[in-house]
Nucleic acid binder design. Structure first.
Lengths: 252, 252
DNA sequence: AACATTGTTGCACAATTAGCAACAGGAGGT
DNA sequence: ACCTCCTGTTGCTAATTGTGCAACAATGTT
């Protein structure tokens, strides 16, 4: 028994994205198959609550600053962040590449912490960035230890290709996930973003469950056969150290 | 014309805080003077939307990871962040103290970016942290250039004292805000958190409006008469540089 | 075992919401 | 300047949905 108008409000909020950060009443009404007067009222209410704001020039709406404060409270309960921060900071200092910590949110992975490389050419992340599970290293780490039935249940939701390299064939993906589980490392080369590749390693909680993914995001030109062994070793070690901090008895 | 049930949902979300990250149905019902069955249904709906999650052991609720992704989109539209990041990183590198960028959210200031000092004793911030306007350096920066009537209109909402040093007398505060406006620097010594002080400087947009506050948060033992001139000068310069990036013609 | 407390659920009713229709304002074209 | 089109907003009312009552299920304490 859920409350329909609250569901509608949440659906409206989720309509905004990195790609479509600003939307109009008429657009949202079409997306949700709801009358525009209804959308207008939902947005008016959400604006009063600081969760959206209206661009006075365009009349269109965006997500509002009030969500940031709510997310701050939500982030505060994610204990892996505290454990990971010093370790990630050191990792980035050592390898001079960007490191990102992700957890699962529905059918996506979301960034809950990140430290950026200081090199001029580097990957820039942000807290709250959502990326697909299937074609990112962090996403594959979060999927690889899921029960097979759960992995299969997600296959109908495979997204479009993001790049020429994106793997979207279910069987090929299953194979990749099995390899991730075996090697404990995920490697994604330009499947999600042209020019960038990523490595991922599992972070486990005290029960041994993979609850987060520690990743390195790197301009592809800098991921070579020469430095790959070092990078993946450093990443593994950092992920193991974070897991140990969380109470995982991992060869500690 | 706002939608009451959506307002209620938002009010429930805002009930969670740093201090009270986990709340039960009965507590929330009392806080909001709403029947607990109503609260239970609101929470069930919000949980289905990923905006809260229930602790299976305690039966209580917390804010959920879905809010982080929404906040990520909201953060993406705050252009001051991109301008500020390299400058803040350099500032922290130079002074070895934590720097925080805040914008206003209603009657509070919220952190939209931060870079932490690597010293062992340091201030740790986080994206989405909300702090009172009145007794933090960033908050005072955000208030100081507000029209007098707007400042006065906020006085009834003065919070309780956080520390022995918190200034909550309206007239004393008005005087402090006038000084901030004159000196272009806010200094708060342990008014919000024991052991920590902060300095704030205004960040202006291309229209000249103060739309963000750049701050340094520092263990009070490290803020001395000796280093204060250097710290405030570095902070001013960094804030001016960010403002210039935003198109403010500030003695460029 | 009995009791207290918490979160959940079925039911019915009336309060609130959703959709229709009209409106206000702005942009673009002639 | 006038007209058309499009967008977001608002008054009104019917009916749908949300709310509160009452009961329930589960857990913890004495």
């Amino acid at each position: 028994m859920t409350i329909q108008s609250i569901q509608r409000a949440a659906a409206v909020l989720r309509s905004f994205s990195e790609i479509r950060p600003e939307l109009g009443v008429t657009e949202l009404a079409a997306i949700h198959d709801v009358h525009k007067s209804t959308i207008s009222r939902i947005l008016t209410t959400l604006e009063a609550e600081g969760m959206v704001s209206q661009n006075s020039e365009t009349g269109k709406y965006r997500l509002g600053i009030g969500l940031v404060g709510l997310a701050g409270v939500a982030l505060g309960r994610i204990s892996v962040r505290g454990a990971a921060q010093p370790i990630m900071s050191q990792l980035v200092h050592d390898i001079q590449e960007t490191s990102i910590l992700m957890v699962r949110d529905g059918r996506e992975a979301v960034t809950v912490e990140w430290f950026g490389s200081t090199q001029a050419l580097r990957y820039v992340g942000w807290i709250g960035r959502r990326v697909p599970l299937f074609c990112t290293a962090g996403g594959r780490i979060l999927l690889a230890w899921e029960p097979f039935e759960k992995q299969v249940a997600l296959m109908p939701f495979l997204p479009q290709k993001y790049t020429e390299s994106t793997v979207i064939d279910p069987q090929a993906l299953q194979k990749l996930l099995a390899e991730v589980k075996e090697t404990q490392i995920a490697v994604v080369r330009e499947e999600f973003e042209e020019g960038f590749s990523s490595l991922g390693a599992p972070v486990r909680d005290r029960h041994g469950r993979v609850t987060a993914a520690l990743t390195i995001a790197i301009p592809s030109v800098r991921l070579t056969a020469e430095n790959f062994p070092t990078l993946q070793a450093e990443l593994r070690l950092a992920a193991q150290n974070i897991s140990a901090e969380l109470g995982y008895g991992f060869g500690g």
